[in-house]
Amino acid sequence: MPWEETHQARQERLLRQMHGNPRVAYMLQHGPVPHWVKVARQHREQKAREARQAATEARTELTETEPQPTARTRGRHRAPRRWWGWPAVALGTVLLLGQTAMETPGASLAPDIGIPI
């Protein structure tokens, strides 16, 4: 590097570049962040990492121990699948009633017309 910049000079240069940044304004007004804030952030990040790792382990353990269903299960938020049995029962009933209703006149008309029933 052609010139060596001191820490103070570097800090002043960076502050000039970040003029108007609300975080920089807060730091200049209240001073630098205390050490306990950095430690608390590290603890939060560590707990988050441990929680993610535990969730990943539980997920892999679950996939190893229980077989996954082959078909996709329907979610509870969806409407239940429509049962097609009622329309089939209704159609069959109408056809049976129609056949029964036509047997009486058909028995008397069939010998005359020649339509087998």
Rank of each mutant, 00 (worst) to 15 (best):
Q68S: 14
V94R: 04
R49Q: 07
W36T: 04
R76N: 10
I113Y: 02
R78W: 06
P69T: 05
L28P: 00
M1C: 09
L14E: 07
R49T: 05
Y26L: 13
R44L: 08
A101S: 06
R49C: 03
A9C: 04
P111R: 02
Q42K: 05
R49V: 02
L28C: 08
V39D: 06
Q11R: 13
R72V: 06
T93P: 00
V89L: 14
W86G: 04
Q11W: 09
V94H: 04
G98H: 01
V89K: 07
E12H: 08
R44K: 11
H35K: 12
R59V: 02
T100R: 09
A90V: 14
P22M: 03
G75K: 08
L97S: 08
P32E: 09
P69I: 06
P67C: 02
W84I: 11
G92V: 03
R52F: 04
P116Q: 06
A9I: 06
R49M: 04
E4T: 15
A54P: 00
P32Q: 03
Y26S: 09
L91P: 00
P116Y: 04
A79S: 11
G106R: 00
A110S: 15
R49N: 05
V24E: 00
T6A: 11
L28E: 12
E45D: 12
T70V: 14
L96M: 12
I117N: 06
L62N: 09
V94I: 15
A9K: 09
T63H: 08
I113L: 07
T63D: 09
G20I: 05
A40W: 09
K47W: 04
L109V: 14
Q8C: 07
P111A: 02
G106M: 00
Q53N: 05
R13I: 02
T100P: 01
T63P: 00
L28R: 09
L91F: 08
R23L: 15
L15E: 13
M18K: 08
A55Y: 07
S108F: 13
I115F: 04
L95I: 12
M1L: 11
L96G: 07
L109T: 08
E61H: 15
P111E: 01
P69R: 07
E103W: 13
A48L: 12
K38I: 14
Q8A: 15
L91W: 05
P116G: 10
W3R: 14
A51F: 01
M102W: 13
R72Y: 09
A110Q: 08
H35Q: 13
G31E: 01
A107M: 06
V39M: 11
R23C: 07
P2I: 11
E57Y: 09
T100M: 14
L96A: 15
A58N: 06
